[in-house]
Computed example of a mutant assay.
Amino acid sequence: MITLEQVKSMIEKEIPDAEVQVQDLTGTGDHLQAIVVSSQFEGKSLVKQHQLVFAALKQPLESEAIHALALKTYTPQAWKATTQTA
Rank of each mutant, 00 (worst) to 15 (best):
I2M: 15
T3Q: 08
T3K: 05
L4F: 09
Q6Y: 13
V7I: 10
V7P: 15
K8V: 09
K8N: 09
K8P: 11
K8W: 13
S9R: 01
S9T: 10
S9M: 10
M10K: 14
I11N: 02
I11P: 10
E12R: 12
E12L: 06
E12H: 08
E14D: 11
E14G: 14
I15F: 11
P16G: 00
D17R: 01
A18S: 13
E19P: 04
V20Y: 07
Q21W: 08
Q21C: 09
V22L: 01
V22G: 03
Q23F: 07
T26H: 07
G27T: 07
G27Y: 06
T28R: 07
G29C: 04
D30I: 01
D30G: 08
D30P: 13
D30N: 13
H31S: 02
H31C: 02
L32D: 12
A34H: 10
I35P: 15
I35W: 11
I35D: 13
I35S: 12
V37M: 01
V37C: 06
S38W: 03
S39Q: 03
S39L: 11
S39K: 09
Q40C: 00
Q40V: 04
Q40R: 07
F41P: 12
E42S: 13
G43F: 06
G43R: 01
G43Q: 03
K44A: 07
S45F: 15
S45N: 11
L46M: 13
L46I: 14
L46A: 15
V47G: 14
V47I: 15
K48L: 14
K48Q: 15
H50A: 06
H50R: 08
H50G: 07
Q51N: 14
L52M: 15
V53P: 05
V53W: 02
V53D: 00
F54W: 10
F54Y: 15
A55Y: 13
A56G: 10
L57C: 12
L57A: 09
L57D: 12
L57V: 09
L57Y: 10
K58C: 09
K58V: 06
K58W: 10
K58E: 14
K58L: 10
Q59I: 12
Q59G: 10
P60E: 08
E62W: 10
E62A: 07
E62Y: 11
S63Y: 05
E64C: 01
E64K: 05
A65E: 15
A65F: 12
A65G: 05
A65K: 07
I66Q: 01
I66T: 02
I66R: 00
H67I: 03
H67V: 06
L69G: 02
L69K: 01
A70L: 07
L71T: 00
L71G: 05
K72R: 09
K72Y: 05
T73S: 07
Y74V: 04
Y74G: 05
Y74M: 02
Y74A: 01
Y74F: 14
T75P: 09
P76H: 06
Q77G: 11
A78M: 11
W79Q: 00
K80T: 14
K80D: 14
K80I: 05
T82I: 08
T83K: 02
Q84T: 09
T85R: 04
T85S: 13
T85M: 04
T85F: 04
T85V: 10
T85Q: 08
A86E: 04
A86I: 05
A86N: 12
